[in-house]
Computed example of a mutant assay.
Amino acid sequence: SPDGQTIISASHDNTLKLWNLNGQCLHTFTGHSIGVQSANFSPDGQTIISTSHDNTLKLWNLNGQCLHTFTRHSTGVRSTNFSPDGQTIISTSGDNTPELWNLNGQCLHTFTGHSSWVRSINFSPNGQTIISTSWDNTLKLWDVNGQCLHTFTGHLSMAQSANFSPNGQTIISASWDNTLKLWNLNGQCLHTFTGHSNLVQSANFSPDGQTIISAS
């Protein structure tokens, strides 16, 4: 959670669980009909958004009550994140199209341009742009109206994840080509990070933006 006092987990047992730091389960969230893929807190820590292979997102309060179910994706929903102001939600799916939603479950914009499954999506720190990664080997930078600003090419295999630096000026991506890449906002690759001997699943910046952690 934003205050660091609780943890949310998502499972293929179709549930989410809210935990304290001692490993005590505070609430079990039931409602998804197939495995839950991801879950994230809102910036104020008062709600949680989850994604599932049942093609939906669900918005929950901290007591495990489902506030809204978001239906529009035609295949399993992979990942989701709140905007920094907590007023909108972005999601990705195997239907190749990210969707931007309000908190009532209304789709505001559909982002079209990727030719394969979109694996991850994140807002910039100022909430004005969005970065997506896809199994079409590319990243795309979008404005919040769904217009593609830049396509980032250079990975030789599926792009799994991407995150903005804390100052919003660079982006780190992880790929199944065993590398990470650091990009500027114009889609220029600044550095390629080699050293992993297998698929790189994720990468992220430290809070001060000076180091990067990767997982393979």
Rank of each mutant, 00 (worst) to 15 (best):
S1M: 08
P2N: 12
P2Y: 08
Q5C: 10
T6Q: 14
S9I: 05
S11Q: 03
S11K: 01
S11P: 01
H12A: 13
N14W: 13
T15I: 03
T15D: 06
K17N: 09
N22M: 11
G23R: 04
G23H: 05
Q24G: 09
H32W: 12
V36F: 00
Q37F: 07
Q37S: 15
S38W: 10
A39P: 05
N40H: 15
S42H: 00
P43S: 03
D44M: 05
G45N: 10
G45L: 06
Q46D: 10
T47N: 11
I48V: 14
I49G: 02
S50K: 08
S50V: 14
T51V: 10
S52P: 09
L57E: 01
L57Y: 03
K58S: 08
L59C: 07
W60C: 11
L62V: 12
Q65H: 14
Q65K: 15
Q65A: 13
H68A: 13
T71I: 15
R72T: 10
R72F: 12
G76S: 13
G76R: 04
V77E: 06
T80D: 09
N81P: 05
N81I: 02
N81S: 14
F82E: 00
S83H: 04
P84T: 02
D85W: 07
G86H: 00
Q87T: 11
Q87V: 09
T88D: 03
I89F: 05
S91E: 10
N96I: 03
N96Y: 14
T97W: 06
P98Y: 01
P98L: 05
L100H: 00
L100R: 02
N102G: 09
G105Y: 10
G105N: 07
L108P: 03
H109K: 13
F111E: 02
T112S: 14
G113Q: 00
S116M: 14
S116F: 15
R119V: 10
I121P: 00
I121K: 03
I121Y: 03
I121N: 01
N122F: 06
P125N: 09
P125F: 09
N126V: 10
Q128T: 11
Q128P: 09
T129A: 08
I131A: 01
I131P: 00
S132I: 07
S132V: 06
S132W: 04
W135H: 15
W135K: 14
W135M: 13
D136A: 10
L139N: 04
L141S: 02
D143A: 07
Q147D: 12
L149N: 12
L149I: 15
F152G: 01
G154K: 08
H155P: 03
S157E: 13
M158T: 13
M158W: 14
S161V: 01
A162M: 00
N163V: 05
F164E: 02
G168C: 08
Q169E: 11
T170I: 14
I171R: 01
I172Q: 03
S173P: 05
S175F: 04
S175Q: 03
S175M: 02
S175E: 02
W176I: 04
W176M: 07
T179L: 00
T179N: 00
L180C: 02
W183F: 13
N186V: 15
G187H: 02
Q188V: 15
C189F: 01
C189E: 05
C189K: 06
F193K: 10
T194Q: 10
H196M: 08
Q201W: 07
N204H: 12
N204M: 05
D208V: 06
G209K: 09
T211L: 06
I212R: 11
I213A: 08
S214A: 02
S214Q: 03
A215Y: 10
